[in-house]
């Protein structure tokens, strides 16, 4: 009964909100105007998936590496990792994309927009991920480290068998959020002319002036990528639950 009331209230409020939004933005939809661009939009959506999936993979490696650096006993590793994180977090992503593409990539003779794009994204997201991972590792109580020491585990074994398995569960929600951010941030890669989702929508809009019809699929397309990540994270959280 309670559940029924909850669902009804949510549905009524949600529908009301959607209705007002619809009335507010009401105009004569011209879906046929952007129909010729459907193929491009779809290809752009695929490009966004490819570039963000590659960046997602690389950013996890970079994040893990930076975390290891920040927790290292070797001071230069700690300072360099720390400096990198502060530098990346302190500057806008757009600036990093422009500097990376127009200054760094040419100097390295990198010309493939796709590669340059996902590496810049990964370098950016890696800094944020490393802070999430670091917080996860530091949140494991001292007693766990001590217990691992008492049974004779080495430092590396302590991380592998005791700390990391517990930390992973704790950082899942924040990591999923960061992954969703990364997918959305990939939209900024249009500035270097990568034919990803946002760029295709902008072009469709520029040629048809069908703004709503160009950008609505864009929003839905990004949601279709980020929601599954959210669900997967919830599912993994439940699967790795070890208390209650």
């Amino acid at each position: 009964m309670r559940r029924f009331v909850n669902i009804s209230v949510t549905a009524i409020l949600g529908a009301t909100f959607c209705f007002f939004f619809y009335v507010l933005l009401w105009h004569d939809y011209r879906w046929e105007a952007i129909a010729p661009f459907a193929g491009n939009l779809f290809a752009g959506w695929g490009m966004t998936i490819a570039v963000s999936a590659s960046a997602l993979f690389l950013s996890t490696l970079i994040g893990a590496g930076l975390t290891a650096g920040q927790l290292a006993t070797f001071a230069p590793a700690r300072w360099l990792a720390r400096g990198y994180v502060e530098l990346v977090r302190g500057t806008p992503l757009l600036t990093q994309i422009l500097i990376g593409y127009y200054l760094v990539a040419p100097a390295l003779h990198w010309e493939n927009k796709f590669t340059v794009g996902f590496v810049i994204l990964a370098a950016f997201a890696g800094a944020y991920l490393s802070e999430i991972f670091r917080a996860g590792i530091l949140s494991i109580p001292r007693s766990q480290w001590e217990s691992a020491r008492a049974i004779g585990l080495t430092g590396a074994q302590t991380y592998r068998f005791v700390v990391i398995p517990q930390a992973i569960r704790r950082v899942l929600p924040a990591t999923a959020g960061q992954f969703a951010n990364l997918i959305k941030d990939s939209s900024l890669l249009y500035v270097i002319g990568l034919g990803e989702f946002t760029m295709q929508a902008r072009q469709a809009n520029a040629q048809t002036y069908a703004t709503f019809e160009s950008y609505l699929p864009l929003a839905i397309g990004y949601l279709a990528r980020t929601l599954p990540i959210s669900f997967a994270s919830r599912w993994m959280e439940n699967r790795t639950r070890y208390e209650h």
């Binding site: 007693s143 001590e146 217990s147 004779g152």
Partner: peptide, 20 residues
């Protein structure tokens, strides 16, 4: 010292089992 710890069994006040 780690080899010393390996020939000892240590029990803490608060159990300190690995929860996972």
């Amino acid at each position: 010292l780690r080899s010393h710890r390996r020939r000892i069994g240590f029990l803490f006040q608060a159990f300190n089992l690995f929860p996972h």
